[in-house]
Amino acid sequence: MKQEVLREVERVVLALDVNGERTELLLPVHKTLLEVLREDMQLTGTKHGCELGECGTCTVLIDGRAELSCLVLPIQVEGRAITTIEGMARGAELHPLQQAFAELGAAQCGYCTPGILLSAKSLLETNARPSRDEIREALAGNLCRCTGYSKILDAVELAAGRMS
């Protein structure tokens, strides 16, 4: 059944704009953005939990909107602004969301944290003072098994308050 591995690999040269840095890469066209970020660009801050679009762990921002990097091909996002967790802080200064997550214990094992931070960043850029329920709606594609979500909601509220 699994004969596709014997097929020829189509490779493409792509210029990806990741965290404001343009990088040219020669990539197998069937490699997902998740794999390319982690394996070809050493941006291992983007995690993965299922690779099937079911858990939200691999969320990145594409032109500011949260998408799942496990379901995106780099060729589909060439020329668009890709933001990963590594691009959230400004230099050594944490983004207010990162600061709030750290202060309030919103990251336990921390594995879902990058994806949730990026979903929250996208939310706050379109809705500066979301209600608690709006935060829930916006983050509903990101599963977390550690926190019970309470501290994450608190942290997004805290950051939103500080940012506006």
């Binding site: 941006l43 750290a102 921390g110």
Partner: peptide, 12 residues
């Protein structure tokens, strides 16, 4: 804050 909080919120 946890001692590893910054490492975890920055993806490091």
């Amino acid at each position: 804050p946890k001692v590893d909080a910054v490492a975890k919120v920055t993806g490091r």
